[in-house]
Design a protein around this nucleic acid. Structure first.
Lengths: 108, 108
DNA sequence: ATGCTACCTGAACTTTTAGGTCAATATGCG
DNA sequence: CGCATATTGACCTAAAAGTTCAGGTAGCAT
């Protein structure tokens, strides 16, 4: 799932037009279009500020949106900062190990 | 340990003056001073680019510096992006659970 | 067909803000 | 003192974030 897709799904779910969303976000329609289609001219995603407001306007999960936009939520950054070694270890694991880890966590 | 402190320690260890460091980093002395004292006008830390170069010039651990600067290293971001749910779960654990997790990982 | 409404897109433009510089000022010290 | 080193605040500037505008598509009701 891409960031833009997700925005569109949220918007459509709430039966809003791009214009509606643009209005409540205080940005231009063409910007919304570009966001949804991933056409922001330097490749990436909108600003964190935009995402923050978006989440609040759409009552969506901000962290999920941030992650889709390849940004690390502040809450997670805090944790990483508290335990850098743990997170570094985990980040260096291979797929198998991560699967195993996830399984063991999920089952508790 | 703060980011700026760490920079100062590294610099002093290598018997460099702020001017030396500024020169080899290609920035002004005053900027170095602000970095070390955490006085960067806009509150936070220098850019990732700066940190990257700093690590290489000082032969220091880039990830450590990034983490001190509240930035998530690209390698870790990639992992997080691949497994957002796993990392969210872990980030939401309390201290005890994290301790347990770390222990189980370390011992294998 | 015409005329809506909604949406897409690229290029060029403006605004805001992150990332610095510069010049003056302190501080330590032989 | 006199020099090297370090600190600060006011300013500057490049790049990010977003706008505007012009033109184009597609569907659908009249």
């Amino acid at each position: 799932m891409q960031f833009g897709e997700r925005v569109r799904v949220l918007r459509v779910q709430q039966a809003m037009t791009q214009q509606d969303l643009a209005d409540c976000m205080g940005v231009s329609v063409s910007y919304i279009s570009k966001v949804e289609n991933g056409k922001l001219h330097f490749g990436d995603y909108p600003s964190e500020k935009f995402i923050h407001k978006l989440a609040s306007e759409m009552k969506a999960d901000e962290d999920e949106l941030l992650l889709l936009a390849d940004k690390v939520p502040a809450s997670m950054r805090r944790r990483i900062r508290q335990r850098p070694d743990l997170f570094r270890r985990i980040a260096r694991m291979d797929k198998q190990a991560l699967d195993a880890l996830e399984a063991s966590i999920v089952k508790g």
